[in-house]
Design a binder for these strands. Structure first.
Lengths: 225, 225
DNA sequence: GTATGTTTATACCACGCGGTATAATTCCGG
DNA sequence: CCGGAATTATACCGCGTGGTATAAACATAC
């Protein structure tokens, strides 16, 4: 919301609005994180070495250690960025309308787009668990819980409004989340389907999942062929 | 189906029905695989060392290397066992009835049970990709594709029968699969929900996901209150 | 009771890992 | 054009890794 999803080193006594230096610093950090996410996605966190990261970036090792103090800190930053963006999507969907049905449609579409376009980062949340200790993961865990709470709240509102035919909002939240997030495991960027196509389908599927009958078939003609 | 899901060393000229020796050998292998799955689930494949595995098993390193020729072979065996059991579940569901609706119900329930009770092994399929080369993964990939084909076939039959209100069977297969399989990421064995509870809900959710309205509310009284 | 299959004990290896040290250098905003 | 920040170059360290060697001990079936 405030614009800075990643922790930003405050420079000086006040929380000054990003000096030019800090700005470029953050750009470098972002670049490192991007390449690291791709590497971790392909080879796994432990499978990707810092030397791999160096050569992929075309830099030397001290360069990276100038910007991050350890490999773990890179992973943590990736965790936080991912779960933060997911939380933002959920909150934005909640704020987008008063109607739970519209909220769910917005959520499903934008969340699917996030997952499909940012899958290398998003995938880390589910794949690389337990690599950091609980203390380090505290914020990540809290944000993840917040994400699910927002989504559960959406479901509960849909039930209250008499629109959703589900009997367990928390479980329905997991189901919608899983249905969409699982795409990280099968989506092929070089395949036929575009993220927009998939997001469209996910929107409809989310509605069906909460018990809302969608128009069918797509062209009019009534059910039953 | 035939009883042996894992590759069994054939002992002798004929494919003899498991000598006592081979039998115990397979038990040992299974025990190793079980503990390895737990370790890989918690610490990741690269994060879990062979020494970790040794002490968890209470054996020495040559013992393991007597039964498996490398760490990779252990991972591969786990892959195969997992994807095989998923495929068996899908095929059994297909064979359980002529009615696609009944097939889907059976699939959702049994697949959810498999995921929840075997999540440490199942999770590997989605988490540890790209660690083995394509050649080694050939069989795993083929079985995974077969699993999705069976599921897509179920969906297509449901459409043909006029029971499912979906317009893309392959995508619906991914959606149902994801909705259920994602449980590996949130299910807590020491939580309130039992696998049976969850499987029940997943069965209903799968029906809704393909556009079948379930009875609602659970107790009669008609919709709207 | 002996041959074969299985497991331990113990020690080892080469390698890649995350991370650091230090000095020299290049960049660039004020 | 200077001075501090950023980056390279290069070399190194200790450690844990996957995997192996070798010899001895145990089990067990025939």
């Amino acid at each position: 919301m405030t614009g800075a999803t990643l922790a930003v080193r405050d420079s000086g006594p006040m929380n000054a609005p990003l000096s030019a230096r800090d700005h470029t610093r953050n750009l470098k950090r972002e670049r490192i994180l991007d390449v690291a996410a791709e590497l971790f996605f392909v080879k796994g966190f432990h499978g990707a070495s810092m030397e791999n990261l160096c050569s992929a970036l075309g830099v030397t090792k001290p360069f990276i250690y100038y910007h991050f103090k350890s490999k773990d800190e890179i992973l943590l930053a990736l965790y936080l960025a991912s779960v933060n963006s997911a939380l933002e999507v959920a909150r934005a969907a909640r704020a987008s309308s008063d109607d739970p049905v519209a909220q769910l449609k917005t959520f499903a579409r934008t969340y699917a787009m996030l997952v499909l376009t940012d899958r290398q980062r998003i995938a880390l949340i589910s794949r690389e668990k337990g690599l950091l200790n609980a203390e380090q993961m505290r914020d990540v865990t809290a944000l993840g819980r917040a994400f699910l709470d927002v989504l559960s709240g959406l479901m509960a509102d849909g039930v209250k409004a008499g629109a959703f035919r589900i009997d367990d909002p928390a479980l329905a939240a997991h189901e919608v989340n899983g249905m969409i997030a699982w795409a990280i495991n099968w989506y092929n960027p070089s395949g036929r389907r575009t993220p927009q196509d998939i997001a469209d389908h996910m929107e409809d599927a989310a509605l069906r999942l909460v018990g809302i009958a969608t128009n069918w078939p797509k062209a009019e003609g009534g059910p039953g062929a």
